[in-house]
Structures are given as C-alpha cells and as structure tokens.
C-alpha cells in the first residue's frame, strides 16, 4: 500500500528528520520506500532518505508492504508533514 504527503518543514528532510524516517521504516520487516518524481529510495537507509533531497512543498509517496504497512506509512507521513520547532523561530 502507499500514501502521498507534502513536506511541511521549511527546511525539508535534512539529517535529523531523515533519521526519524529510518527508525520508523525499520519497525517493518518488509521493504519501505520513498518515491519522489518517479525515483525510488530505500527508507531504511539514512543516505537514501537524505538523498531524496525533499524540500518544502515536495510531494513524497511512501510505499510499504506487510502487516504493519499502514502503521509504518502513517508514522513516516507524520514526520514528512511535521514542522520543526527551531524552524519557527528563524526569520
């Protein structure tokens, strides 16, 4: 199954949110991928997730299989749509 989300963090998916995505993806034993502009990235690899280069306003599709797919997709979706606190106090 899959679901799409739009990045809400003004700083996109940089190192810290990327690590949270990897942790959420590792809750599943099955493959979890992020898709942006037709390119697929392994959500369990920090380098892959950072390499997505997701910026504010980008649409990302999360794909997952298995019994926990729904929970894993929702957990990653929450990270993709989260806004970091330190982002709010800038500017």
């Amino acid at each position: 199954m899959q679901n799409s989300y739009v990045i809400q963090n003004p700083f996109g998916i940089h190192a810290r949110p990327a690590r949270k995505i990897v942790e959420a993806a590792k809750a599943s034993k099955e493959s979890v991928t992020l898709v942006k502009d037709g390119k697929s990235f392994n959500a369990k690899s920090l380098v892959h997730v950072i390499s997505v280069g997701a910026k504010f306003g980008d649409s990302i599709t999360v794909n997952a299989d298995g019994e926990q797919a729904e929970d894993v997709i929702a957990a990653i979706g929450a990270i993709l749509t989260a806004v970091e606190q330190h982002a709010e106090k800038e500017q």
Partner: peptide
Amino acid sequence: AHLIHTNHAII
C-alpha cells in the same frame, strides 16, 4: 554519497 543542498552536511 550525498552533499546536502545547503552545504552544511555531507555523507
């Protein structure tokens, strides 16, 4: 492996 576009981090 990846240079973050804001150049503040690199893998």
